[in-house]
């Protein structure tokens, strides 16, 4: 029974692992902490898995638990703010339509996102994942208005960092 549950969890996670990688991309800036956070999230997801009854999609459930882990659990562990140089090694870029200026700006943007606080990173993540404000508000337990205000503030912050 337990091993069946484990098997089903592992195969679903393997299939949808990108969602966790994406969260790690926003919350960490080097390969080791990316791996650490990935593992931490995996363990938290597994602990929470018995409560997942398939009412929501696995991905929807997983990204919420994963974000919560990144916000609460990880914050306790890593007290220092990550301001390390953005590491392109794990975040490989597609170099097809290479545009140097845009590329530089994107690098700078990732660096800027890494300087945001954990809640703001969660907002950015959901924005990038095309979640609407109702869902953002619901996930973070804040009002929709508050979510919009926060989002605008983030946009302002990023603009300032990218164009000082």
């Amino acid at each position: 029974m337990n091993s069946n549950l484990e098997q089903s969890f592992v195969s679903q996670l393997e299939q949808h692992q990108n969602i966790i990688h994406k969260i790690c991309r926003l919350y960490t800036s080097d390969e080791d902490s990316h791996k650490d956070l990935f593992q931490e999230i995996t363990i938290q997801l597994w602990k929470a898995f018995p409560q997942f009854r398939g009412e929501a999609k696995f991905t929807t459930w997983a990204y919420r638990v994963a974000l919560n882990t990144a916000i609460t659990l990880y914050r306790k562990k890593v007290k220092t703010v990550n301001t390390i140089e953005f590491d392109g090694k794990i975040h490989k870029f597609n170099h097809e339509d290479y545009n140097y200026e845009e590329e530089e700006q994107i690098k700078l943007l990732y660096k800027a996102v890494h300087q945001l606080n954990d809640i703001e990173k969660a907002l950015v993540f959901m924005y990038l994942e095309d979640k609407d404000y109702t869902e953002i508000a619901d996930t973070l337990g804040i009002s929709e208005v508050n979510a919009r205000v926060k989002m605008n503030r983030i946009k302002g912050k990023l603009k300032k960092i990218v164009n000082p």
Partner: peptide, 28 residues
């Protein structure tokens, strides 16, 4: 800015190193 980031985000959605089922078991 955020839309520029989003464009890159979507483009690199599958650029992560793949973690195998075995590795997930090991983590658990």
């Amino acid at each position: 800015e955020l839309d520029l980031l989003k464009k890159d985000w979507k483009k690199n959605e599958h650029s992560f190193p793949k973690i195998t089922e075995q590795e997930i078991y090991a983590m658990l």
